[in-house]
Design a protein around this nucleic acid. Structure first.
Length: 514
RNA sequence: GGCCCGUUGGUCAAGGGGUUAAGACGCAUCCCUUUCACGGAUGAAUCACGAGUUCGAUUCUCGUACGGGCUACCA
């Protein structure tokens, strides 16, 4: 009996589409647990259902893991000693385990056609039992190696008749196990059906494949979504029959992340306007584009932070965690057992906190790209960094930088003239004309001196600074937003500041004449 | 329908027989800021229900209700 098995955990997605929040959180918890215990985190691709294969989905999953910084130690592309890491490439090894189960009386061949199964469901359907299962009560009525004479079974097998292998669930046994989150969970085998283990195409189903692969890959802990809880007894039994209970990993079934009406879905995201996928997913079949958290403007640091505390906390008031802190503090026992509704407002708050917290060099490249996509070119790198520093506390999403920082590098296209015009007068016109001259002669171009000079001049003209500040802001920014006006002027530089004032004055002149 | 899991403000949640039942998001009001944010202060809002155990239950037990998941040769 291994006293301390090396920690080896895995995330096992099937490559069928976008990677949603719940999936990323499962990755996160697995990753954190592995790193905390100096263990390995493995990515295994569960592509046993060829009918659901989606090209590009696997590569997409890798990209998501890369973006979130939760990269596996072993995977189809990272390699490792327990490969191959795609179940489709492991196909040949599953059959022997299924046959072994048959030989030992724990499983059987079933020759029922899809039509026969359909008929069974119709025949056994009652009001009390609207969806009959292939279980110990119906299997005597079906065509399988338990009901057919031995000779006929052999003949069918020899003729290569299409068949599956099903687990033979005990009629009345209690299967129980300790879930690291929920404590003891138990099931009566009489209500669990005879799950197919090996499909007619020779591929294993999830149930056989997870157990075999987790064994072969020496997985020590299985953390997966709560939706797997009902099939846990099948897996427990398979472990017992195949490898003995001592080899079995420890289990934890993670609570679901809920949308407004149940399990969070892509539909919820579309309907309520928030992303559900880590990164944008382009479905090659429908060509449908679903925006992800990355493209929406989330920082990976914020994304894993908000996911970590959706269902877990360390018992203190801390909410902002770095990845390193999470590795140190995470504990699977403190994960909630109840599902958590996803709150997009709070998610944005996390991102805002991270934008403020992080060095701007941590995301300047992405912001630059966003600006360039809007036709705003960055030429002065030093100025760019200063601008980001100045406006970052006003940005909740990375995409907000376009509005908050864009005007520094490209003059506004639209001006909120209406905010100025009604109160415009000759005195202000004179003031700004003089301001231009004064600015042009200025040799101390910094926010503080600019402000003092501006106020002195206002006093000389007997105009309250407040009445002049807003017009100046509109001239430089185009609207009523942004940091302090003189900080803006400082970063804009003398020439650009003067040019924008002149331009706006000219604009005002035109409008006046209308 | 059956099985399983769950239930502390609108949301995330701490707490686990005796508490003024933390904190965060969001919301409201005020302060700061002659813009918008940040920040600060204050406020409204919670233990699903019913029994039982107990001197005392939000906390333990049992029911009920509600929510969710599963019920495929999908994962």
């Amino acid at each position: 009996m291994p006293a301390t098995k090396k920690v080896r955990v895995r995330f096992a997605p099937s490559p069928t589409g976008g990677l949603h929040l719940g999936g990323v959180r499962t990755v996160l918890y697995n990753y954190l647990f592995a790193k905390q215990h100096q263990g390995d985190f493995i990515l295994r691709i569960e592509d046993t259902d060829q009918s659901r294969y989606v090209p590009g989905a696997e590569e997409y999953i890798f990209n998501c893991l890369k973006w979130t910084g939760l990269e596996p130690d072993e995977s189809p592309i990272h390699g490792g000693d327990y490969g191959p890491y795609r179940q489709s490439e492991r196909k040949t090894q599953y059959r022997q385990y299924a046959e072994q189960l048959v030989k030992n009386g724990y499983a059987y061949y079933a020759f029922d056609t899809p039509e026969a199964l359909e008929k069974m469901r119709m025949d056994f359907k009652t009001d009390q039992n609207p969806s009959p299962q292939y279980d110990h009560t119906v299997r005597p009525a079906m065509r399988n190696s338990l009901t057919l004479p031995e000779g006929e079974v052999k003949k069918l097998l020899d003729e290569n008749t299409r068949h599956v292998i099903r687990i033979k669930m005990p009629e009345n046994e209690t299967v129980s196990f300790t879930d690291m989150i929920r404590g003891e969970v138990s099931f009566n085998t009489s209500v669990v059906d005879d799950k197919v283990l090996l499909k007619a195409d020779g591929m294993p189903t999830y149930h056989l494949a997870v157990v075999v692969d987790d064994y072969l890959m020496q997985i020590s802990h299985v953390f997966r979504g709560e939706e797997w809880l009902p099939s846990a007894p099948v897996h427990i039994l398979l472990w017992k029959y195949l490898f003995g209970p001592d080899a079995m990993p420890q289990w934890a079934h993670l609570p679901l992340i809920l949308g407004p009406h149940g399990k969070l879905s892509k539909r919820d995201g579309a309907k309520y306007g928030f992303p559900v996928f880590a990164m944008t997913w382009n479905d090659p079949k429908t060509n449908e584009l679903t925006e992800g958290f990355k493209e929406k403007g989330f920082l990976p640091e914020a994304f894993i932070n908000l996911l970590a505390v959706l269902g877990w906390n360390d018992g203190t008031e801390q909410e902002i965690f770095t990845k390193a802190e999470l590795v140190e503090k995470f504990s699977i026992e403190r994960v909630h057992s109840g599902g958590a509704k996803f709150d997009y407002e709070k998610a944005k708050w996390f991102n805002h906190e991270w934008i403020k917290k992080l060095q701007v060099t941590g995301y300047e490249l992405q912001v630059k790209e966003l600006l360039e996509n809007k036709g705003i070119a960055i030429t002065n790198q030093a100025q760019f960094i200063q601008v980001l520093e100045l406006v970052k506390e006003r940005c909740v999403l990375l995409t907000d930088f376009v509005e908050q920082a864009g005007f520094f590098f490209k003059a506004p296209e639209k001006y909120d003239v209406d905010a100025v015009k009604p109160k415009w007068n000759e005195a202000k016109q004179v003031f700004f004309a003089e301001l231009i001259r004064s600015f042009e002669l200025n040799s101390n171009w910094n926010a503080h001196d600019l402000e003092t000079g501006f106020k002195e001049m206002a006093a000389a003209h007997q105009i309250k600074p407040g009445e002049l500040l807003l017009p100046l802001r509109i001239m430089l920014v185009g609207g009523k937003f942004g940091p302090g006006v003189f900080h803006i002027a400082e970063l804009l530089g003398k020439e650009e500041t003067v040019a924008r004032i002149k331009h706006f004055l000219a604009l005002l002149g035109e409008k006046k004449e209308e």
